[in-house]
């Protein structure tokens, strides 16, 4: 018995080694540095200066707002569209295979490529602008809507929606397929019309899985650096972009603030997931 337990921990040892050495270690040193605590270079008095400094910065709050806005908006839009797309694909008779392929085709495509594609499509001299010109709607590129590096982060949201709709959708599709048609059939013979079937049968059945995967998307879009870096505007930048900017600042005194900001990003992302887990468990229990 004792031996068996030892064996299990030995099997886990390499994974745990990496997790503790790099992941936990990275977080730990990040936290220490953000508290100005680094005995190696003689900093032995931890303090909250970096955090206080951040909190007194208007740019930090504007960035936080921007990051939350992007994460919440793109997750919400992706979720709604993913449900719609999954419902559509479930019954798409002639082209179901093709669509399912396109859906899963999108999944392994790197975000970088998605961002570049969005740029090519939606920049003011991009493909969409050219089509708009073809219809005679605009004269010059400047007449086209500003959709990339714009103040409302539309380019960023478009990229996230492009990538996350298939991600969430494939989960919804799998749930829909495992549910089958019978729940709907039963509710239909009980007098439920199309709207009622959606509202009282399909939606409650797919909600748990949809929310769990969407909350992962939420945490991801909150902590992602590259997409806002490529498609966002300079001010206010999102928190991850700001953190990297502070980190690469020639002024090394900004490093603790960069650390503090990255720790805050991690904490908020983790809190989103934890809050969801806590809420969903409470709802299950109160049932």
């Amino acid at each position: 018995m004792q031996f068996e337990r030892l064996k299990i921990w030995l099997m886990l040892a390499p994974a745990l080694l990496v997790l503790f050495a790099v992941f936990i270690g990275g977080l730990g040193f990040g936290i220490a540095r953000s508290l100005n605590y680094m005995p190696i270079i003689g900093l032995t008095q931890p303090n909250f200066d970096a955090y206080i400094g951040l909190f007194s910065l208007t740019e930090f709050w504007r960035s936080l707002g921007m990051t939350l806005y992007i994460a919440l908006t793109s997750t919400a839009i992706s979720m709604v569209l993913a449900i719609g797309a999954a419902l559509l694909l479930r019954r798409a008779f002639p082209s179901k295979r093709l669509m399912t392929f396109l859906f899963s085709f999108n999944l392994p495509i790197p975000h970088i490529v998605g961002a570049i594609g969005i740029m090519f499509l939606f920049a003011q001299s991009g493909f969409m602008a050219r089509i708009a010109h073809g219809f005679g709607w605009i004269e010059r590129p400047m007449d086209f809507l500003v959709l990339v590096n714009d103040p409302y982060a539309i380019g960023i949201i478009l990229e996230y929606v492009w990538k996350e709709v298939p991600f969430i959708g494939i989960v919804v599709l799998a749930v829909l397929q495992s549910i089958g048609d019978d729940y709907e059939a039963v509710s239909q013979t009980l007098g439920a019309g199309p709207l009622q079937r959606f509202r009282f049968v399909i939606l409650p059945l797919i909600t748990p899985a949809t929310l769990s995967v969407s909350v992962l998307v939420l945490a991801f879009t909150f902590g992602e650096f590259l997409i806002p870096y490529l498609l966002g505007q300079t001010y206010p930048a999102t928190l991850p972009v700001l953190a990297v900017r502070l980190f690469t600042d020639p002024d090394l005194n900004k490093r603790p603030e960069a650390m503090a900001m990255s720790i805050l990003i991690a904490v908020i992302a983790a809190l989103m997931v934890l809050a969801y887990m806590w809420l969903s468990r409470r709802i299950v229990r109160s049932d």
Partner: peptide, 10 residues
Amino acid sequence: IIPGLTVALG
């Protein structure tokens, strides 16, 4: 869940 950015910076 935790961004790689945070881990790498630390």
